[in-house]
């Protein structure tokens, strides 16, 4: 690690586990001050502890990204504690219940769209004004390869992830002149080391069947998504804007 985000203030939502936690840790190692925002208090505080243990700076602010007041508070806290906001990784999301379009309940639909899509709109709504104050900023939203292609039995998730790419492009165009870049990452199947994931992968031939579909012949690792996020946040990506970057071992190249 080499200080690619030295002295930057970065918000990471959904950082209590998975890609969010791995990214928050990597962002901390790059020299940033990290604001950890999610609903799960124990997980969020654990991420803070891990960052501090590695010599970084971080604090936790309990945030439900689907609630405007929570998101507004998240940005206010970042400014209060660290004095500014340079980058945001809007990553909080849920997969929802597995059921086809006909079987998807309205409750599941609303919940997935509220957290995955409305959550990213709300995050940007409050992050962008803070970034406009210094005339510079970089936002990365977590979409998915399911924001590019479809799949069965997750209609709300697929719609939310496609929506995130639309929202990313729209926001990028609106604030391009103001010096704010907005991009999305689209992870393919990614290993994050969570317990639920281990359970899923150990079921039957799940992992073997999934891996067979990936041209690179393996799952991605959370750190590989984190590297893409850090790079998109950094000045090395200064002319990359409004893009949805697949990190997917060529899954969407087929």
């Amino acid at each position: 690690m080499s200080g690619k985000l030295k002295d930057k203030v970065v918000i990471v939502t959904g950082a209590s586990s998975g890609i969010g936690r791995a990214s928050a840790l990597a962002i901390g190692k790059e020299g940033a001050q990290v604001v950890i925002a999610n609903r799960d208090v124990a997980g969020g505080e654990e991420t803070v502890r891990l960052i501090k243990e590695a010599g970084g700076q971080a604090f936790f602010v309990r945030t439900d990204v689907s609630k405007a007041a929570d998101v507004e508070n998240m940005v206010n806290q970042a400014i209060k504690v660290y004095g500014r906001l340079d980058c945001a990784f809007n990553n909080a999301g849920i997969t929802g219940v597995t059921a086809p379009t006909v079987g998807c309940s309205e409750e599941n639909w609303d919940q997935v769209i509220d957290i995955n899509l409305k959550g990213i709109w709300l995050s940007m709504k409050y992050e962008i004004p803070a970034m406009l104050k210094q005339g510079k900023g970089a936002i990365v939203n977590t979409s998915s390869i399911l924001g590019i292609v479809g799949t069965e039995d997750r209609p709300a998730y697929v719609a939310s992830k496609h929506g995130i790419i639309g929202l990313t492009k729209a926001a990028a165009l609106e604030y391009a002149r103001a010096g704010i870049r907005v991009n999305a990452v689209c992870p393919g199947p990614t290993k994050t080391g969570s317990v639920a994931e281990e359970r899923l992968f150990s079921e039957g031939n799940f992992e073997k069947e999934k891996v067979a579909e990936i041209p690179m012949g393996r799952f991605g690792n959370a750190i590989e998504i984190a590297e893409a996020v850090i790079w998109l946040c950094s000045d090395a990506a200064s002319f990359v804007n409004g893009q949805a970057l697949p990190v997917d071992g060529a899954l969407t190249a087929r």
């Binding site: 990028a172 165009l173 391009a176 393919g188 041209p215 690179m216 991605g220 690792n221 590989e224 998504i225 590297e227 893409a228 002319f239 990359v240 804007n241 409004g242 893009q243 970057l245 697949p246 990190v247 997917d248 071992g249 060529a250 969407t252 190249a253 087929r254």
Partner: peptide
């Protein structure tokens, strides 16, 4: 290391 087969625009939006 997990990015392959992508055609990445560098185009200011």
């Amino acid at each position: 290391s997990y990015i392959t087969g992508h055609t990445l625009p560098v185009d200011g939006g």
